[in-house]
Design a protein around this nucleic acid. Structure first.
Length: 108
DNA sequence: ACTTTGACTTGCA
DNA sequence: ATGCAAGCCAAAG
C-alpha cells in the first residue's frame, strides 16, 4: 500500500470504535500522530470510499463539544442521531453525552 | 506551484 | 456565553 497511510489509519481507527461509544476528531488525529489534524479527520470522513462506508462508523465521530457536526453529510441530518441512540449512546439535549461514552483510541 | 477550503481545536477578547 | 483568529494536514481548483 503506497497510498496515503494517514487516511487508512483514520479509517482503521474509526472502525475500532466500540458500539455505544463515540470519539472526537481530535483524539483520532492525536492517535495517528497528528498534533491538530482534526480537520484531516473530517476531510477523510468526507472522502470515505463507498466500500468503507459500511465499515467505518462515521456517525460515532463527533466534535469536541459532542455536537453531531457531520450529520448534514449523512443521508439525512437525522440519520446520525438516530443511529447513535439506536446504539445506546447517551444524549444530552441535541448533543452526545460525550463525557459518558467517550472512547479513546489506542495510541499508535 | 499557489490559493482556498474543510464533518476541528484552542486561545483570547 | 459569544465572536474572531491562528494552527494544523491534505485534497481540489
Amino acid at each position: 500500500m503506497s497510498t496515503s497511510d494517514t487516511y487508512e489509519r483514520i479509517y482503521d481507527l474509526v472502525r475500532q470504535i466500540p458500539r455505544g461509544s463515540v470519539t472526537t476528531y481530535g483524539h483520532i488525529a492525536a492517535a495517528i500522530g497528528l498534533r491538530s489534524g482534526a480537520r484531516l479527520v473530517g476531510w477523510a470522513m468526507n472522502a470515505i470510499p463507498l466500500h468503507l462506508r459500511h465499515e467505518v462508523p462515521a456517525h460515532r465521530v463527533v466534535n469536541r463539544n459532542g455536537e453531531l457536526t457531520g450529520k448534514m453529510h449523512f443521508e439525512t441530518p437525522f440519520a446520525m442521531r438516530e443511529r447513535l441512540e439506536s446504539e445506546g449512546v447517551p444524549f444530552d439535549g441535541d448533543r452526545v453525552a460525550i463525557d459518558d461514552c467517550l472512547w479513546i483510541p489506542p495510541l499508535v
